[in-house]
Nucleic acid binder design. Structure first.
Lengths: 110, 110
DNA sequence: AAAACAGTTTGACGCTCGTCAAACACTCGG
DNA sequence: CCGAGTGTTTGACGAGCGTCAAACTGTTTT
């Protein structure tokens, strides 16, 4: 249901630009962001993302940084947690930023 | 003249998104970016930017991070160095990103 | 030549960050 | 109830970062 609990996250108005850029200034978290960019909900299992070499607690740490910066939201459902992008909130707070970053991430090398 | 020497900086095609976001994910460097956003050339003296409390070597360090990430360019002229935004290069590599960040930096708090 | 100027580099110091391992909390299926 | 499943938390470690102070490079001025 949609009244499942959510892990702590900043209110939209409290999302800070420098904090977001810092959160996204890490290759692992950028990889996570790109996988979330499909708009869907994702489990915390990073298999299939090229992050299989990382310990599960490391991935959990990165997801916490993304959530606490305001980039993602996490819905708790039973023993699963479903992570998704806060696209509407980010667009409201920083119009065009997320789109520019996602577009940029697809920019070709020379 | 415009054939002054420039400090080392990455080629446009080598500018890396995560590196740029990491460079901008720091309050001091964001302050520098905003002061460079006027498009002009700026000395390394941070007076008037609210960074007077920082040692000159600290400012020099931050300017190096910005330059090496590809955000700024530094022209050497005599004993002065003039720092400016690589706006055209950034727009070419990551269209819309810089504008979105500059717009976002002006987003109002609650 | 000497002094002042503008900025960089080096080294040192804490603090934060990314990572792993182990323990923990909670839920679901026999 | 017990064990397996999913993820978080804690503690530890090394690497990197932001900062300052001092020494240094190169330039301009006197």
């Amino acid at each position: 249901m949609s009244d499942d609990e959510r892990l702590a996250q900043p209110a939209t108005a409290d999302i800070d630009l420098v904090t977001v850029l810092h959160a996204l200034g890490d290759p692992v978290r950028m990889t996570l962001l790109l996988s979330y960019a499909d708009g869907g909900e994702h489990s915390c299992d990073p298999r299939g993302l090229g992050l299989e070499h990382l310990h599960k607690s490391t991935v959990s740490h990165h997801m916490r940084v993304l959530r606490e910066s305001g980039v993602t939201t996490t819905r708790v459902a039973g023993r699963n947690r479903f992570v998704s992008l806060r696209r509407a909130d980010l667009d409201a707070r920083f119009p065009g930023l997320l789109d520019a970053i996602l577009t940029a991430s697809a920019a070709p090398l020379p």
